[in-house]
Design a protein around this nucleic acid. Structure first.
Length: 512
RNA sequence: GGCGAAUUCGUCUAAUGGCUAGGACACCACCCUCUCACGGUGGAUAUUCGGGUUCGAAUCCCGGAUUCGCUACCA
């Protein structure tokens, strides 16, 4: 049998910003598609009009773009593709016929119960410790086309009364399913309920829309979060009832991403409460509420994607740093784990550090440019790139380029008290004074030469290397950190070096 | 409550019946070093519990515990 073309979709609901769990689902779909030479589509599932958030769709598109997860088809692609439209609200009219087809084949029925009535039944059920379920046991006592007379149903339908269409879940059937990640899974239909497929507002619910669209869009594999595992039997039954079982996609349910502390899955509502972003990009909601994003926090997309890929998947080797191309090459559903993973913000920082370090000076200079502009610093890109090369091993975030490299651009405004206390001893002023005289006479102002001559001087005078160098570092940097001392000298130049050291000499008082 | 799924260092994970349970993050110590980092070396820390099967179990089977998910005219 010829293998079906691999077509997968990421189908988020625009109810707010896409959070990192969603990005990971998109990533795994994308990797799977690319690995197998297939298509990755982006479909928007906006069937719930009450939860619709205006900017969410654009945010989703931009987030995926930032991550380098580019759809082949669907929302955000021009032209969108042959199976459009790819927004369920734009497909609204397509679902009704399938809902009615299910009614005709006896797999679904009209229900007239109002939400209020159902809520009341649920509350009552809870009190009596006998939860209300709309299923084979109760449906004949409720208000629907199975329990009511044909005339009564006609009358209600013709009078324009609100109705929903429910799936008639068969009684006592054992359903054996296969999940690509979880392997064999078993359900009995008595545990399931008569889910609403078609809502009174004329929109399908997720279950119907999802199955219909996946069928029409020729989806071969459904890769989604574990929260959907429980509805897999319903979806499979829907494929069967609609007569589509032969082209039913394979299912793979991904383990969830859990909160690093406390309990439960990571959710949008966690926002910044946990001290790290849960969203790829900065978010501003309809009511002006904001949430931080990985991009603005100083993460590079390579690191974010790399971290996400290793959350729930592993290559079976000890390689941890992967480019997108390497991920595509290595990815397989077989190596996706079964258990949920707690998200670790510390490891995410490490990935960013690794990725930043792998970038060239000029690549980093591009990240640094907006920060320098904000600080009103003018410098040539060559100079900035050189600085980046010197400090890239000390940064975790793009922003650290400034905190770790400001002294290449501006003189320190203060001096670290702790360093003064430790290094600026009684004999320091005299030594530094002498060192200034040495610097003034230097004509070959390059790092290596300067270092050799300075070391010779220190040895000749029998000074303590650590004390002298650290005092000089304090003078040019203002703190006990930073790049190689003589590299700093060369970079800022002779005049600036002398000016800074002289100023330190004039300002700093010998520690008691 | 019902149903489903899961369970290896604090965290992410490797080991699909067989070396001393391996790696990474974080932590500690030492080395490198003018500082901060980087790097290197070493350390501490794990098979949820109880039964079985087997020469041998993290791995297979049964039961308990715990965690997560679902249980909406939300996805």
């Amino acid at each position: 049998m010829a293998e079906r073309r691999v077509r997968v979709r990421f189908a988020p609901s625009p109810t707010g910003p896409l959070h990192m769990g969603g990005v990971r689902t998109a990533l795994f779909n994308y990797l799977f598609a690319k690995k197998n030479g297939g298509d990755f589509l982006l479909r928007i599932e906006d069937t719930d009009q009450t939860r619709f958030v205006k900017n969410a769709e654009a945010y989703i598109v931009e987030s995926l773009k930032w991550c380098g997860i580019n759809p082949d088809e669907g929302i955000g692609v021009t032209p969108e593709g042959p199976y459009g439209p790819y927004r369920q609200s734009d497909r609204k009219t397509m679902y009704k016929q399938y809902a009615y087809q299910l009614i005709e084949s006896g797999n679904a029925y009209f229900a007239f119960d109002t939400p209020e009535e159902l809520t009341k039944l649920r509350e009552k059920g809870e009190q009596e410790k006998n939860p209300f379920v709309y299923n084979y046991k109760t449906r004949m006592e409720l208000c629907n086309s199975l329990a009511l007379s044909k005339e009564e149903v006609e009358k209600r339908l013709n009078s324009g009364e609100n109705f929903v269409i429910r799936f008639k879940m068969p009684e006592n059937q054992d359903i054996y399913l296969y999940d690509e990640i979880r392997k064999d899974v078993h359900f009995n239909t008595n545990e399931l309920d008569d889910k609403v497929l078609y809502k009174s507002d004329g929109m399908p619910t997720y279950h119907l829309a999802n199955v219909v669209d996946d069928y029409l869009m020729k989806i071969s594999h459904v890769i989604r979060g574990e929260e959907w595992l429980s509805s897999m039997p319903l979806h499979v039954l829907l494929y069967r009832a609609l007569g589509w079982e032969d082209v039913m996609p394979k299912f793979a349910h991904l383990p969830l991403i859990l909160k690093p502390v406390g309990h439960g899955k990571l959710s949008k509502r966690d926002g910044d409460k946990l001290g790290f972003p849960v969203f790829p990009l900065f978010w501003v909601g309809d009511e002006g509420e904001t949430a931080s994003g990985y991009r603005e926090t100083g993460y590079v997309p390579e690191a974010f994607v790399n971290m996400l890929a290793l959350l729930g998947w592993n290559p079976g080797t000890e390689q941890e740093i992967f480019t997108m191309d390497e991920l595509i090459k290595e990815f397989s559903l077989e190596r996706v784990g079964k258990s949920g993973s707690k998200f670790d913000p510390e490891k995410t920082k490490w990935f960013n550090q690794q990725w930043l370090r792998r970038k060239s000076g000029s690549e980093l200079a591009e990240l640094f440019a907006p920060i320098l502009a904000e600080k009103n610093v003018q410098a040539s890109t060559e100079y900035v790139a050189k600085v980046c090369d010197m400090i890239k091993e000390r940064i975790v975030f793009a922003q650290d380029l400034w905190s770790q490299g400001y002294y290449f651009f501006v003189a320190p405004e203060s001096y670290d008290e702790k360093v003064i206390k430790k290094r600026w001893k009684a004999d320091a002023p005299a030594q530094i004074q002498e060192f200034i005289e040495f610097l003034k006479k230097e004509t070959d102002y390059t790092s290596a030469t300067l270092e050799a001559k300075a070391m010779a001087l220190i040895q000749e005078k029998q000074w303590n290397v650590g004390q002298v160098c650290n005092c000089l570092r304090l003078a040019v940097v203002g703190a006990g950190m930073g790049a190689h001392l003589f590299d700093i000298f060369e970079m800022i130049g002779k005049d600036e070096t002398i000016a800074r050291v002289q100023k330190a000499l004039d300002t700093i008082k010998v520690a008691e």
